[in-house]
Nucleic acid binder design. Sequence first.
DNA 1: GCAATCACGATTTTCGAAAATTTTGGAATT
DNA 2: AATTCCAAAATTTTCGAAAATCGTGATTGC
Lengths: 220, 220
Amino acid sequence: MTLAEKAYDALRHDIVRGALPAGRPLRLADLSQRYGMGFSPLREALNRLQAERLVTAESLRGFKVAPLSLAEFEDAVRVRILVETEALRGAIASGGDDWAANLVAALYALRLQVERQQGRAEDIWELEARHHAFHRALLLACGSPWLMEVFERLYTATERYRIPALLAAPTGAGRNIQAEHAALAEAALARDAVTAVALLEAHYRRTAEAIRTRISDAAA
Amino acid sequence: MTLAEKAYDALRHDIVRGALPAGRPLRLADLSQRYGMGFSPLREALNRLQAERLVTAESLRGFKVAPLSLAEFEDAVRVRILVETEALRGAIASGGDDWAANLVAALYALRLQVERQQGRAEDIWELEARHHAFHRALLLACGSPWLMEVFERLYTATERYRIPALLAAPTGAGRNIQAEHAALAEAALARDAVTAVALLEAHYRRTAEAIRTRISDAAA
DNA sequence: GCAATCACGATTTTCGAAAATTTTGGAATT
DNA sequence: AATTCCAAAATTTTCGAAAATCGTGATTGC
């Protein structure tokens, strides 16, 4: 792996995790110290992250971690619902045995991690990776690279908002998120598109609501 | 404007235009010659374009112009219809006088250029810019930055396919594209969402069909 | 006292060369 | 004749310094 790729992964991780908070200026000299490399690979990584809207750039004035706003989060959730319900219909319509088997596997691996976790805030990253993998496995058979591309982009955009909530309450504070995932997978595997789409939409609306109140609380 | 930004614009232009054909390896030494600058600004531009899927990159093996395929084009059109119909409904629902005025202006400027053009292949870029601006103006009031972001990404993705057709037949080969634009704007301004969405979808399906047969012909 | 100006330090941007890696072409071996 | 191996060439990647630009604070002029 090249240094530029390491820089990309490290920066991306630190931004999504919040180690580099929103709005923070990303000075080359600092980053060079922090990640132990020269300017070139860092600038490459920053340019890629800029195109993904994880960092902002102003000509001759350097880079910053992109700001967070409740409005942007709500917007991202709205578009996620639009795009992912369409992808889900496609996956249910055209998914084969591989899709079904991978979905069962992803759900199972997610469950194992949730049970291992038992509310502890450790290994949040393993949990997060399993969660991402589950949602990806659910949609993957839709057969549309662009739908998947938009899914990935919006997933990381919303990930930035969900991580702080996860760190505070890894099990989901009263809500049985795992049961929602199981029901969603069940409906998809039963090829019940209408139910599956409704469950997916409800899943996101509940998650959005939880994060919304969390952000309001934090502001108070 | 920094050299990196110039490099980004120039590369983007040359890729969309087809001056740098799909699959062509983008060697730093060549690009340095072609655009008259060092490696650094070029690498930055290439990294941004990679994130936009206009170029592909393989570790230690350099960059290439991203390939074209009929399947990818059809996929992009499908997602454009999904996303833009949603944005159009939003714009019609919440667009104010500024939106309406800008839309009228964009349609008018597009018409002026079409008439000036009169089938000649010159100034295709002015025409293309007006066309892009019209579709942007149509959706802009939807109030969703993410919907607009996806629109922009997919517009340039499909632009690569449409430009060769435009160069061959600037007026649209029998089809009165300008009438479609006018009808679309009229329905939107009349706040008739159902009609406007139907016209937008039909507009894209016809364009896709024209390009599809064109590509098939070229292959024969 | 206050605004405009200038010089300095901090920072970004770019270059040119060095380092690392892949690719190429040919010689040696089977 | 085909394959493997190695050195040379081509190419990408990275660094360190130079150039360009921005922001700041002191200084000057009014």
